[in-house]
C-alpha cells in the first residue's frame, strides 16, 4: 500500500510540475545557473590540482659543476647524494649530452646554431638532476648540496621552479576562493528562488490542502507531491548543469591540453564524470527537496 501511495504522490508531483510550466522553467533555470557555477568551480579545481601535481612531479634540482671538475668526482658526488634518504633519483648529464639536447631542442633556430659554431667549443656544464621523494624536502636538499659541494658547484637551479609552483598554487587558491564565494551566493539565491517558487505553487493550492485534509489525507500524503515537485526542479536543473559543464570542458578547457598527464581534458572530465555529476545531482536534489519541505510546513497544521 505504501508503494501504491508513493506512486500516486510521485505522479501528482509530476502533474504539478508540468501544470505550472512557467514557474517550473523559471525555477529550473535559476537552479541550473547556480549548479553550473558550482560544478564549473569543482571541475576547475580538479583540473588545477591535476596540473599542479603534474608540474610538481617534474620538479627537480639541477646541480651544475665547474668546468674543471672531472667526471669521476661528479660520479662520487652523484653516489653521495643518492645515499641521502630524501632523494628519490639522481641522473648524471654530461656536458656532451647537455649540448646534444640543447642543439636538438633548438635545431630550428639558426641564430643559436650560428652562436654555437662561433664559440667553437661546448659552453655547457656537466650536471646532475636530483629528484626528492617528497616535494617538501627540496629546500633541505638544496641546503645539503650547497653546504657539502659548494667548491665543485658552479650553480644550482631550483628557485625558478619553486616560484612557478608557488605562483600557480596562489592562482588556484584564489580561483577556488572565488568559486566557493560565487557558488555560495548562487546556491543561496537558488534556495531562495526555489523556496519561493514552491511557496507560490503551494499558495495557489492552499485551498486544495484543506480539501485533502477533509477527505482524510495524512500530512505526509499531502506533502509528498510537493517534495517530488522540488525533486523534479533539482533533477532537471542538475541534468542541464551536467550537460553545460561537459560542453564547457569540451569547448573551453582544451586550452590546457598537454599540460596535464591525461592528454585530453575531455578524458579527464569523463574519468571524473561520476564525482562531478554526482555532486551536482545531489546538490540539486537537496536544494529542491529541502526548499519544498520548508515551504510546505506553513500550510500543514493538523
Amino acid at each position: 500500500m505504501k508503494l501504491l501511495k508513493l506512486g500516486r504522490t510521485f505522479k501528482e508531483g509530476w502533474t504539478i510540475f508540468v501544470r505550472n510550466s512557467w514557474l517550473s522553467v523559471a525555477t529550473v533555470s535559476v537552479l541550473f545557473l547556480s549548479l553550473y557555477v558550482i560544478g564549473a568551480t569543482l571541475l576547475t579545481g580538479m583540473v588545477a590540482n591535476e596540473l599542479i601535481g603534474n608540474i610538481e612531479k617534474n620538479v627537480s634540482i639541477g646541480v651544475y659543476f665547474k668546468p674543471d671538475i672531472d667526471e669521476s668526482r661528479i660520479k662520487e658526488i652523484e653516489n653521495e647524494i643518492k645515499n641521502n634518504e630524501d632523494v628519490s633519483s639522481v641522473e648524471y648529464v654530461s656536458k656532451e649530452q647537455a649540448l646534444d639536447k640543447f642543439s636538438n631542442d633548438n635545431k630550428d633556430d639558426p641564430v643559436i646554431a650560428d652562436a654555437l659554431n662561433e664559440i667553437g667549443e661546448n659552453p655547457l656544464l656537466s650536471s646532475i638532476i636530483v629528484k626528492a621523494k617528497d616535494q617538501k624536502k627540496y629546500g633541505q636538499l638544496v641546503d645539503y648540496i650547497e653546504s657539502n659541494f659548494s667548491e665543485e658547484m658552479n650553480n644550482i637551479n631550483y628557485g625558478k621552479n619553486k616560484d612557478v609552483i608557488e605562483r600557480l598554487g596562489k592562482i588556484v587558491a584564489t580561483v577556488r576562493k572565488i568559486g566557493i564565494i560565487l557558488g555560495a551566493v548562487f546556491i543561496s539565491i537558488a534556495i531562495l528562488i526555489t523556496f519561493n517558487a514552491i511557496r507560490l505553487s503551494l499558495y495557489v493550492r492552499k485551498r486544495e490542502f484543506d480539501v485533502m485534509r477533509l477527505v482524510g489525507a495524512s500530512n505526509l500524503y499531502i506533502k509528498a507531491p510537493s517534495i517530488f515537485e522540488g525533486m523534479f526542479y533539482g533533477f532537471f536543473a542538475s541534468v542541464l548543469a551536467i550537460i553545460a559543464i561537459a560542453g564547457t570542458a569540451y569547448s573551453g578547457l582544451p586550452l590546457i591540453q598537454g599540460l596535464i598527464s591525461r592528454n585530453d581534458v575531455i578524458n579527464f572530465y569523463l574519468s571524473n564524470f561520476l564525482v562531478i555529476s554526482g555532486s551536482i545531482l545531489v546538490a540539486g536534489l537537496l536544494v529542491g527537496v529541502v526548499s519544498s519541505m520548508i515551504a510546505i510546513r506553513k500550510y500543514l497544521k493538523a
Binding site: R213, L214, V215, G216, A217, S218, N219, Y221, A302
Partner: peptide, 12 residues
C-alpha cells in the same frame, strides 16, 4: 498524527 485517520469516519 491520528487526526487524518479519525476524519475518515466522516464525509463532509
Amino acid at each position: 498524527k491520528h487526526l487524518p485517520y479519525f476524519r475518515r469516519n466522516f464525509g463532509t
